[in-house]
């Protein structure tokens, strides 16, 4: 894999057979995402974008095809190996923030670094740096319930960035946010992307996100319908 390619999927297929009738969520998807891209994966409901994100994020396994993330083939890793892989290589931002409600914003950001057994000094400086980067240095001791939706999502971004992952996967990150919070969040992500070359991959319906993305991959019926870059 070339150095600047962080995600490469080839001929990816996913069939759900939970019911008597198998559902083809992905039908031979090929996709490469390079370091520093700001990519939106779009498509109507049922087009397979969340499935694709789950597979790229190591949360789900493909039925067929190859998934290489940061140079590693993750399709055949065990559950525990996948957990370890996600911890080191992938940052997640979820639609409903999913912060740990009993921890403060600072502790939420620190959490993955604790799992990685980083030193206290390193954790402290990285947490402060990230909380400043997301503009919430003054809300470090607040619990999620004391923050607005937009602020919680920014903490979630800081948490995703904490372990210095290869890329950030964001599943509908603005779905629960108002316009102002959405704009703030997208500004912040775009700045991180531009200044620190952090790779973002979104799955989204949100036109505001699509408008800001530099690359838009459209899925339909489990296939890549179009792939446009706007440099």
């Amino acid at each position: 894999m070339e150095n600047n390619i962080v995600i490469k999927v080839s001929d990816l297929e996913k069939i759900y057979d939970e019911t008597a009738v198998p559902v083809h969520a992905l039908r031979g998807v090929d996709l490469e995402i390079r370091r520093g891209e700001f990519t939106a994966i779009v498509g109507p409901s049922g087009s397979g974008k969340t499935t694709l994100l789950n597979i790229i994020g190591g949360l789900d396994r493909p039925t067929a095809g190859k998934v290489e993330v940061d140079g590693n083939d993750i399709a055949n890793l065990s559950d525990n190996q996948l957990i370890d892989f996600r911890k080191k290589h992938i940052g997640f931002v979820f639609q409903s923030y999913n912060l740990i409600p009993v921890l403060t914003a600072k502790e939420n950001v620190e959490f993955v670094m604790l799992l990685q057994k980083r030193s206290k000094a390193e954790r402290d400086s990285r947490t402060r740096e990230l909380m400043e980067a997301v503009g919430l240095a003054d809300r470090m001791q607040n619990r999620p319930s004391e923050l607005s939706g937009g602020q919680q999502q920014r903490v979630a971004v800081a948490r995703a960035l904490a372990p210095k992952p290869a890329f950030i996967l964001a599943d509908e990150p603005t779905a629960n946010l108002d316009s102002k919070s959405t704009a703030n969040l997208l500004d912040m992500m775009a700045r991180l992307n531009k200044e620190e070359n952090i790779t973002f991959v979104f799955s989204t319906h949100d036109q505001r996100v699509i408008d800001r993305a530099r690359r838009v991959v459209t899925l339909e019926d489990g296939k890549v319908l179009s792939d446009h870059s706007r440099e």
Binding site: N80, R86, S96, V112
Partner: peptide
């Protein structure tokens, strides 16, 4: 369940 799923997604292993 959702929170536990998130914890495992971000790298908390099963033993933890």
């Amino acid at each position: 369940m959702k929170e536990l799923g998130m914890l495992m997604a971000i790298g908390m292993n099963k033993l933890r």
